[in-house]
Design a binder for these strands. Structure first.
Lengths: 223, 223
DNA sequence: ACCTGAACACCGTTCAAGT
DNA sequence: ACCTGAACACCGTTCAAGT
């Protein structure tokens, strides 16, 4: 108790372990999160973690739940808008802001063998919102699947064509093998030459896809 | 040459290595694909692989390209339908059939630091199809982002509410904490009590989401 | 040209032991 | 109750060596 060596480090708790794990994943991606590095970040040995969490899967379950709670809370701050669609849109964009700070989250959530409680809670609120907006349970069910991870603000891209601005000489090379893609790129890049993000703005594209789905669901609603 | 010991195993080639890697990933998931197990499946030592591929990332790049080619070829078999939308739909569903045999593919494709050539080729054809259908390059660009991994037949789900049929007693438990989800489940499960897949049919849900996006894009087209 | 063995720096985890 | 050291079965990879 009075020994400075023992008092030097706060005792481990499950909460401290999970918070440190999230910091590691945020900063170095999910592959930076190892039991050994996590322990080191906490000033402990790897084996000490096992007293507070049930192995690495326990850590992943835990951080999934913490982030899902954060998403739920952010969405909960959104007040009712003029329509179910506007409210759902605002809630999902609020969720996305959280997710942008935890980009590893969709993969971890999808990899859990048991449903993550706070994710269910988030979707429960979404179902309630859509039901109150006049959508049938059947349509809502299809809608949740159609949204998939987009419901929490994430859309999986297969390649990043906007890794950098397209150079004219790259375009001519591209045109031979991929004429349609090159044609599209040339025009889209020309329309927005100022874009510092390259020619794709993630946020704009996310909102476009989200609106496409929400609009489609609203149109399918029986009025 | 006449020594049976030496003749016992076909020499390694990049193609054989990649084919074996795909079999491993198909059968045991992407985490079953390790350099050591891959070598073992080929009757060689782990270090021998490095002569044919540039490490594990080279294997991942390689299998990503092979599967993307398979997807491209499957889509290429589809002949023109009555509209761009019908053709795109049929091509994407053909891609999905390939993907269902290689469920690890979306994750691997998304994890590549360089674009996978055959994925670009597949998207190039899709762009051409949409352009011929009267969509502007700008709309096509948004459309590709809106589709994301759905363009090759994959939709990321955050949880699998259809892991099994919902039991009545589970529903009452659920209803307390998640009233809206429970209400939806009760109705959807009731509507289709025969479903052996639980209450969610992946294929149906995939097609619903796909049509929502394709219909939305077609509607946004200037006619 | 093609393949390998030994070795290194990592993983997650078990188990017996410390305080 | 809480933490640790040694050890085990795995990883990917480098490097020098074999044929």
């Amino acid at each position: 108790m009075t020994d400075p060596e023992l008092a030097a480090r706060a005792p481990l708790t499950k909460e401290r372990v999970l918070r440190a794990a999230i910091v590691l994943a945020d900063e170095g991606g999910i592959e930076a999160l190892t039991m050994r590095r996590l322990a080191e970040a906490l000033g402990a040995e790897a084996m000490s973690l096992y007293y507070h969490v049930s192995g690495k899967d326990g850590v992943l379950d835990g951080i999934a739940e913490v982030v899902a709670q954060e998403i739920s809370e952010a969405a909960g701050q959104i007040r009712e808008q003029g329509s179910w669609k506007a409210t759902a849109r605002a809630r999902i964009l609020a969720a996305r802001e959280v997710l942008l700070r935890h980009q590893w989250a969709p993969g971890v959530l999808a990899s859990r063998s048991q449903p993550v409680p706070a994710v269910l809670g988030y979707h429960d609120a979404l179902v309630g919102l859509m039901r109150a907006g006049g959508l049938s349970y059947d349509l809502i069910h299809h809608g949740l699947h159609a949204l998939g991870s987009r419901a929490i603000g994430f859309s999986q891209e297969l390649f990043d064509p906007g890794a950098g601005p397209v150079q004219p000489d790259q375009l001519t090379q591209l045109a031979a093998a991929l004429p349609h893609l090159a044609g599209m790129l040339a025009e889209v890049a020309h329309d927005d030459p100022e874009s510092t993000l390259g020619w794709c703005d993630d946020q704009t594209e996310f909102e476009f896809g989200l609106d496409l789905i929400l609009d489609g669901l609203d149109r399918a609603r029986v009025r």
